[in-house]
Every structure is written in structure tokens, then in C-alpha cells.
Nucleic acid binder design. Sequence first.
DNA 1: TCATATACGTACCGGTCTGTTACATTGTCA
DNA 2: TGACAATGTAACAGACCGGTACGTATATGA
Lengths: 213, 213
Amino acid sequence: MARKNLKNPGGETVGKSPRAGAAKRKRPVAADRIKRTARDLFYREGIRAVGVDKIVSVAGVTKPSLYRSYPSKDELAVAYLRDYADYFWERFNGGATRHPEDARAQVLGYLRGLAERSQQKSYRGCGISNAAVEYPERDHPARAFAEEHKKELRARLAEMAKAMGARDPKQLGDGLLLLIEGSFLTGQLFGAAGPAASVVEIAERLIDASCKR
Amino acid sequence: MARKNLKNPGGETVGKSPRAGAAKRKRPVAADRIKRTARDLFYREGIRAVGVDKIVSVAGVTKPSLYRSYPSKDELAVAYLRDYADYFWERFNGGATRHPEDARAQVLGYLRGLAERSQQKSYRGCGISNAAVEYPERDHPARAFAEEHKKELRARLAEMAKAMGARDPKQLGDGLLLLIEGSFLTGQLFGAAGPAASVVEIAERLIDASCKR
DNA sequence: TCATATACGTACCGGTCTGTTACATTGTCA
DNA sequence: TGACAATGTAACAGACCGGTACGTATATGA
């Protein structure tokens, strides 16, 4: 009998109570664990490098639980990417609330955080950029999602460049995107004290040189 | 007498000899085909995505031939990366011969070529950066090679920045590295008219803003 | 109370992955 | 001609891949 795969399993799910001692279980806990585990492993080790067996074993669940929540590994991967994108925008927009009406400070604020994170040992760059590298095939869902996301980011940066008063907003936005993607990559290649550590100053210089005075 | 009339029992009939001195040299042709094929497939599809079976089948050789020439797939991968690095330096240094004594023109020359390549449909970024993304494990040979290579590039860029008269040569070198890596990534993500198309102008602006006047 | 839906596990499938072996074939050169 | 080097043939191992048919415990609601 054909059975539909349910989507958005569990949603938030109240975390299991600290003590309680496994008395009564609430709603879907397996799906949630899978998502969290997949996110962790996919980011740290790469999507192709992580098999579904490993995901379920680390999550402490079983394979059918995975395939009840997600139709395929590929779809689990895009679910991970979707989550990652939310996470990204949260950080990216974090500066906007702290510096309303100041696009320059917003971008620099994000870059400051990026520079800091990129120095950490566990840093692995942008999960979405990495996925695009892992899946060059144009029609792969993960790839498609990555392209869409980056297009959005590019547009956002151009917008902000315009707000900064850039002579050529699109170009400055592209320059910032290059610096950001460069930071993603070098951040995971060089450990601490990599090029990404200087991204704030470099961006400042580029912005200043690109705006009407 | 001697004819290179192999019966080719496999039936593949790959593009055959340009003849010439084929009578003499009979040295390992399989190993060469493997390397060339691996380079092509690894670059286009990614290392993890390509199995050894596919390599030998496309190369028109057999698996034992591969493992006679390379101890493992990983080692074949680093052989590919080594080749790729040679290829990279060739292009990177190409500008040096055209513009001796002018570091700025050298970098910009390389970037001009990069910008152009990055617009092509088949562009897949830097094989070495991609490998680093595919293999985050610190002790993987491909990863180790990638780290070494990028360290070298970073040093070269800092050198050139110094020659340009940068106030902070290391920082300008890092800025250029960020732009380059950003171009690698965005070049394969956006098709034509991606951010990498503007990398020359952006680099120019950054360089000018970073040098003593 | 009992049928049903939910959440999950057991056990397995067929295929592919890297890597290996023993042995046959063939062209080339001394 | 005979030794040798380069390659192919034909299996195989063992792990791992994504994916599934089916059984089971539990909680809910009529």
C-alpha cells in the first residue's frame, strides 16, 4: 500500500525532560534526532562522505525512521541546507537590528562574526557553498537550492551596497560576495590566522574605495 | 612484422594511436590514460563522486592496470591534484613573463584570465579548493596537499603585494586570496555574468587603496 | 473497551564501492 | 627464439550504499 511520506516531522518537539527517566515519550523524537544529527555530520564531514547508516546509528534510531521522515538522502540533504540557510540569514540579519539604517555597519558586523568563526578549529565554511562543490550536477536538488540561496545573497549585498552609496552597487556587492565566499573557503583551509581574519579591514577598504564621497 | 594491430577484445575501440613512433615506445600507456581520464572526471564531477570503475571504463583500461600504477584511489587523487597545481602555476606565472618587474600587472593578468574562464559553462572552480571541501579530514592526503598548495599561494601573493608597495603586504595578499577563492566558488555557482566577472576591477580598487601613494 | 493511527524497530534487499588475486595474452627487444 | 614488460580476463572479498517489506508497541478517541 502506498503511503505518503510525511513532511516536517515533529517540528519543534519539546525536548525530553532532563530527568523523567524515559517514562513516557512525547511526539516524534526520531525524526528530530535525525535532522539534528544529519546537520551536524553533513556540515562537519560533508554530505557525500556521510552515509545514511552512519546518520541513523549516531542518532540512535533506525533507517526506516529516516525514510519515513524524508523521502531520500538527497531530500534530507536539502532539508539540512534549508536549515542552514535559516541559520545563515539569522546571523546575516543580526547586524541589521543592531545597526538599522546603516548598511555598511550591517555588513561589517556580519563580517566581524564571520572572521571570528572562521578562526575556530571546527570551522568548515558555509554548508551551502560546500554542498554546491559536492554536487556540481545542475539538476541535483542540493545544487539547485544552493544556487538559489546564493543568488538571493548576491541580490541582498547589491541592495546594501546601494544603501551605502556605492558608485556601482552591483559591483561592490559582488566584491563583498567574493570576499565572503573567499572567507568561507580559506577559513576551513587555513586554521587560525588565516586570510579570513582580515576580511573586515579588507572589506572596509573596498567599501570606502567604492563609495561616493 | 610488428603491427600495432591489437585485437582489442574489450570491444571499446577508443580513439586510437596517432601512430608516429608507436612502433618503438610501448611503455605504459594505460597509466597515462588513467591519469588523463581521472583528471578530467575528478575535475568535472568531483573526486568522491567518481568511482574507480568509471575511471577505468572511460579510460578504456582495466582495474588492475589502475592499481598497478597507483596504490589507491586516494593516491590517484593527489596525483591529479599535483598535476592541477602545475597547471595552476603555469597560468599564475604566465603574467610574470609578460610583465616582468610589475607585480600588479602580473596579478591582474592572472585575474583577467580567471574572470574569463569563470564565465565558461564548464567551469568548475579550482580542483584543489574543491578537493579540500570534499576531504575535510585533516590527515587525508588530498587535504594535506591542498593545504600546502594554498599556503604557497598565500605566500606568493604576499610577496607580490610587497612588490606593489602595499602598506600591509600580508593583508593585501590575503585580500587578493579571498577574491581569488571567491571567484573559484562563485564562478562555478553562477554561470556567466557572475561576480567573478568583476574581479579585476575590484582587485584594482583594493590594490590601489592598499598601496602607498 | 477496542479499533485505529502513530511511531518505531528487525531484518533484509540488490547494488556499488575500493581493493585484490591468479592467470592468460601480447608486442618488443636482445 | 625466448625472456620480459605491459596489459587484459575473470573472478572475489568485504564493507557500505540507498531503500523497503513487515512486525510491534503504545497511545488515543469513539
